[in-house]
Design a protein around this nucleic acid. Sequence first.
DNA 1: ATTAATACTTAGTATCCCGCCC
DNA 2: GGGCGGGATACTAAGTATTAAT
Length: 768
Amino acid sequence: MGGEKQYKNGRRKSKTRRLDDDDQYSGDVTKSKKTLKKTSKVDKRPKSEEMEKPLKKGETPEIEVLDIKKENFERALGQPKSEDSDFQMEKKKGKKKRKDDDFRVEMKGRGQKRRRESERTEGVSDLAEGHTAEKNRKVKREEEEQVDQAPEMKRKKKVKDEIDMEAKIGNEGQAVSVKRKKTKEELEAAKVLKMKKKEEEEQQRWRWWEEEKYPDGIKWKFLEHKGPYFPPEYQPLPDDVRFFYNGKAVKLSPAAEEVALFFAQMLDHEYTTKDVFRNNFFKDWRKEMTHEERKLITHLEKCDFGELFQMHKDKVEARRNMSKEEKQIIKEANQKIVEEFGYCVLDSHRERIGNFKIEPPGLFRGRGEHPKQGMLKKRIRPEDIIINCSKDSHVPEPPMGHQWKEVRHDNTVTWLASWAENVQGSCKYIMLNANSKLKGEKDWEKYEVARKLTTCVDSIRSQYQQDLKSKQMKTRQRAVALYFIDKLALRAGNEKEEGETADTVGCCSLRVEHIALHERLDGDQHVVEFDFLGKDCIRYYNKVPVAKKVFKNLRLFMENKQEGDDLFDRLTTSELNKHLSSLMLGLTAKVFRTYNASITLQQQLRELSNASDNQAQKLLCYNRANRAVAVLCNHQRAPPKTFEQSMANLQAKIDSRKEQLAQAKGELKQAKKEAKENSDKKLLAVMEKKKRTVQRCEEQLLRMEVQATDREENKQVALSTSKLNYLDPRISVAWCKNMDVPLEKIYNKTQRDKFAWAVDMTEADFEF
DNA sequence: ATTAATACTTAGTATCCCGCCC
DNA sequence: GGGCGGGATACTAAGTATTAAT
């Protein structure tokens, strides 16, 4: 990987210029963000006048545009003040929000068209007025009872009992024939059951998208849950599993032992060979030791975790070798935990929680060259946890003998519990599942904002094209950054604290060493070569021909800078976003990613798909369109560990199939010849058979070859991220309708649940 | 105007699980 | 019937963006 690269050393530490140097800038609007920062990376560079010099010829008048209000902007562009552009954004300004959102009203109409009558409606409107705990609990109870007593369920149970009964009889009777019959029937019954369940689920689904939205930042009116689920306490090792220091067995205190085990469990992982990881681990481990232990254990190299490691491996092995029954028992136990802790009641609806389990302690595994890798991630106790729920709800009980840090009732946030994590000092939250109302609504909003960008993207583009010629350095930098964000779907690139995280960058935090300028490259003019580590230390490498003005600006920005200096030294993400939100309500840098991803999917689908294709071809086309987006967004994955092997296996299969085909062809020829010579019926039949064999072989071969290319193309590309986070699901739903492809071919169950709102409301004529 | 805190989305990897092939 | 490939799910790190505090 290019990950080892120069960044580690190449990144220049701040050679701070003192603040008084900046006095020269005073009065100048364009102030470097870095020069004002105490840890400036920007070194002595020419003063702003020099930087600005080339601009002087630019006759562009002082630009006021930056400060124009949205209305002005739209007026200037000759656009009517779009009604729906007010969508949900007012609330961000803390103003009262308009009561009805246009898009919602519109959609509501659509949804209702196909709405099935359900008793739920009544309950909802009933509860809309006021939520008392009593009411909610009552509803919940009723729901449960309803479910329990539903005739459907009773019937199901009956069917199941019958099956069980039959199985018993069957096993006692004539084993073979009855058994087969049984499985067949069982399958049938299972099918029916499944369908019933599906239908039921559909009935139960909360169609929140047909309801009124809450005003302001209110996220819920009633919230009740059981609190988080804690991992089991540490069980000290049995005496026969020993830890050795310097060749001598040492019985560790439970606290030190637990941490030692964390390390031992990872011994087969590359992490444990890295110095940073080892040092961080050792430092934190020693903190957990008793005085004596700390005195004794001073060198990690002298530690022998062999027996701990072995024990861990044995455990993993044992788990793998568990019988079906044992596994079933565990599964059921887990199910029970999910039933109890995995759901909450939100405004009278039962919603799945996304991560109700507290993260167990362990060693921190950062991505890439993380300076904190190997540090101890401490066990979270109830005393660390803040609970958020309704005042009038049943407040979750802390585990026996413990207390919560705090219980609060804040309905302007969506989390149920939170705690501060010790490694990075950041906050972690327990929140709802992606299929919940809270997440779904936000997702819908996100795509609506991105969609709105469609209407003004042209003017925004022409504006930043103009800004490339601005007199002000700041404006130019912003324009170039925006150009990258728009054209290449780069992330915004917030500033990060040095030394706290791996050295990764986004657009605004690009440094001069991350790009190379080529006047001419591979027949293209003005090529920028990007090479940097982005989010999750995924390498972004790309050679892009850019507009001449952009190229020249870049050269200017890089003048008199050296490795480690910011490319956009006068730009921050918040300034950029401030500017963007003045152009369109709700517009931020990341909206461009969503917008470009979705619009690309739509275009690609239109371009590639053919109504007359068969289903497999259509699906291939969908995947290709999806892939185009994934490539644009640089969604990569490590090639599966087994990739080479499985590819070779597939190739071997293809080869052997080819041989088979050749042979079959030969035989067919022979058979044909024989059949011709004496037209015996038998021979003809043989010939037909051979023919079919050949055909089958060819089909299989083709399928495998397609599979091979598909897999090869997907080697390093992850489709799921874009599918889940960037592609407006309504595009896909509409495409399925138009192409007559079942939605299940595109979205699995989880995805259909997450996008239930889109599945329900989208017609074939949807346009992003 | 910065910085810090907060809240929430986006991201890749590990693991589970299930059907398929030998 | 056991291993294997791959999809689904679990997990949690790492981003973005806004708000609050200084």
